[in-house]
Write a protein that binds this DNA or RNA. Sequence first.
DNA 1: CGTCGACTTGAGTTAACTCAAATCATGTGG
DNA 2: CCACATGATTTGAGTTAACTCAAGTCGACG
Lengths: 233, 233
Amino acid sequence: METIKQLSHIPLFDGLAPEYLQDLARIVIEQVINRGEQIFADGEEGKGFYVVITGRVKVFKLSPEGKEQILHIFGPGEPFGEVPVFAGTSYPANAEALEKTKVFYFPRKAFIELIRQNPTLALNMLAILSKRLHRFTALVEDLSLKEVPGRLAAYLLYLSSKQKNNNELTLEITKTQLASLLGTIPETLSRILTRMSREGIIKTDILGRIQIIDRKTLEKLAQGEIRLSNSNL
Amino acid sequence: METIKQLSHIPLFDGLAPEYLQDLARIVIEQVINRGEQIFADGEEGKGFYVVITGRVKVFKLSPEGKEQILHIFGPGEPFGEVPVFAGTSYPANAEALEKTKVFYFPRKAFIELIRQNPTLALNMLAILSKRLHRFTALVEDLSLKEVPGRLAAYLLYLSSKQKNNNELTLEITKTQLASLLGTIPETLSRILTRMSREGIIKTDILGRIQIIDRKTLEKLAQGEIRLSNSNL
DNA sequence: CGTCGACTTGAGTTAACTCAAATCATGTGG
DNA sequence: CCACATGATTTGAGTTAACTCAAGTCGACG
């Protein structure tokens, strides 16, 4: 069946016996969310978690004044909203579709039953949560110990490694969203991109495409070994 | 045996059949770490995780310039350093004893074997990692969306709820460490405590004891609904 | 009682923010 | 296919929260 095939492509379910995929197919609920629609809200009670099938989802926090901090952008194959399933708490952040997105929803009770019967599934989930924790420590480090140019440099290098296109990368999100992901605002991001270009570190094409000219310097920036000079004039 | 009794008091092992506690007792390694000694380092390969038995451990990140961001302070019964066990990566941060500390060390391979055989243990671990993720989202929110007075207010309220002593609380760490936990520096923390005292929100005894005078205002500060006025003179 | 780290206070600097405004990009309805 | 509406982006000007550097005080412990 189509659903089972899709389930089998989800890393969380790697190594699962076919019978368990069938069990999963029985409990899963497919949903389509339009661009800009909310999937769940910070503080809302959570009765299950999601896996992105197609499209993209941003998970974010909001301040009372409306400033947004993106915690993570999830793409196909990635699960999100698991925290309340296992911690028995509410969702710790908001989730919204960045584009038309298809997700699978797994109700808590049935999923926990499956985990009880299947140690591989438990270990896969433990691995995913652990990796998420690892990423979060990096995010905290960025926000607390690095300046915005360093965070941007780290992000560009990350994108460059994810996309193979040697030294030529494409921002897959708007600069406004990137600013929110980096814990800053669009104006600041824009100015720093300008500075990096002027320093000959990167070259910005139109349309969110960026070339890395001086990777060494970018790496030093990301490590906090050097700072971007103040070419203010 | 003594070890089994100590294991039974660890929340991670709640609900485990006695036979599994015996299994755990067989694989566990006891260690004593002196104040200031490092337990593991950021980036080091991890072959197991720890549980605090007595004492306290800080887990933290360091910037190249030596600034420190504390991610978490762990006390008796709390596990730490689990990420590499399940994600197969290195430790994502540094760990150091704040005082003389006894820990149990659980080697990765043996522990994963136990998890395979015991769904309750797996679910307990999933719950703990999920709660940790929840806390980290709060930390990111604090660092990115709140000013230092708001973070401090939130921390004081948290301490007040943890300690029962109505409106009278004791910092269990030095103010320098608190500064690092809040993502700031001692000078800034000191100034903000002074401001809060001058505003009549709190009263600082000598010796790290603090009284909450105006809880309402403290709560609004923590929520970011108001800001601390600039009584600069 | 002296030493060392913790804490406080002052003075000056700065990275990043807010506010404002202009420009560009995209897409929709006519 | 064009004109406008909406949102993204850039640039300028001014402000500020928090930082750095410096110096002095306090407090606990050997």
